[in-house]
Computed example of a mutant assay.
Amino acid sequence: MKTGFVFIAAVSTESALSLLKETVMKLDVHKMTDAPIWSIEHFLNEVQPEFTANSWVQLQDLPSDYSHDEALLLCQLSHDEWVAWVPQHGEVILHAHQFCALH
């Protein structure tokens, strides 16, 4: 095992890059595309419920001391961001970790 390590350490950067290019060229692309593709979107949908525009949610953190603890979702900006309206505060951008479904 030590000799392999010494060999790798002794290889120049150009030789290592050349070896890496040769290895990549030998990969069978068809075998790689048959593998299932993991998606973060699927994971997020399993972990959090789907929220829709015009639905009320419970806030985890209040935007101000005087605002309500619920918000109305107006529109989705990204997979984890929403534009929402909070009574006694106004419009805010909420991240998914800042709210949950109403109890």
Rank of each mutant, 00 (worst) to 15 (best):
F5T: 09
E70G: 05
H42C: 06
S39Q: 06
I40F: 11
L102C: 15
F7A: 13
A9H: 03
W82L: 00
Q60S: 14
A35M: 08
G90C: 11
M1F: 08
V24Q: 06
L62T: 01
K31A: 04
T3C: 10
W38H: 07
V6T: 07
L74Y: 05
E70H: 08
D69M: 03
A84D: 04
V86K: 02
A84L: 05
H68N: 09
Q98D: 14
F43T: 05
T52C: 14
V29I: 11
L59G: 03
E70M: 11
A101S: 15
T52K: 15
E22Q: 15
Q98R: 14
L77W: 04
A53T: 09
F51S: 00
S55A: 07
Q88G: 05
F5E: 12
N54M: 10
A101L: 15
T33N: 10
A53E: 12
H79R: 12
H30M: 00
K31Q: 09
E41T: 03
F99N: 01
I37Y: 06
A9G: 02
K2N: 10
V6G: 02
D80K: 08
H79N: 12
L73H: 04
S15L: 15
T33Q: 11
E46S: 15
S64N: 15
V57Y: 00
V57H: 02
M32E: 11
T13P: 10
E50D: 13
E14M: 12
V47A: 07
A16W: 02
Q98L: 10
H89K: 09
F51Y: 09
G90D: 13
I8Y: 13
A84P: 01
K2S: 11
K21A: 15
H42W: 04
I37K: 11
Q88K: 14
S39V: 00
P49D: 08
L73V: 08
S15R: 12
V83L: 15
F5I: 10
E70Q: 09
C100W: 00
A101G: 14
F7M: 12
E81R: 08
S78P: 01
L72S: 03
F99R: 01
S55M: 08
V83P: 00
L94A: 03
W82F: 10
V29Y: 03
Q48W: 11
W85R: 06
V24T: 03
H30Q: 02
A35G: 04
V86S: 06
L17N: 15
L19S: 08
E91W: 12
C75F: 15
L72E: 07
T3F: 09
L59F: 02
S55N: 06
K26G: 05
G90P: 10
F5K: 12
A101W: 03
Q98N: 11
L74T: 03
K21N: 10
H42D: 13
G4K: 07
W38Q: 06
I93N: 06
S67D: 03
E46A: 15
E91S: 14
V29A: 07
F51E: 00
M32P: 00
T23M: 06
L17R: 12
A71E: 03
L94G: 02
H95I: 06
T52P: 00
W85F: 14
K26M: 11
I37C: 06
V6R: 08
G4T: 10
D69R: 06
L102A: 12
D61S: 04
H95C: 13
L62D: 03
D80Q: 09
L20S: 05
C75P: 02
W56G: 00
Y66V: 14
S64M: 08
W38G: 03
H89W: 05
T52I: 08
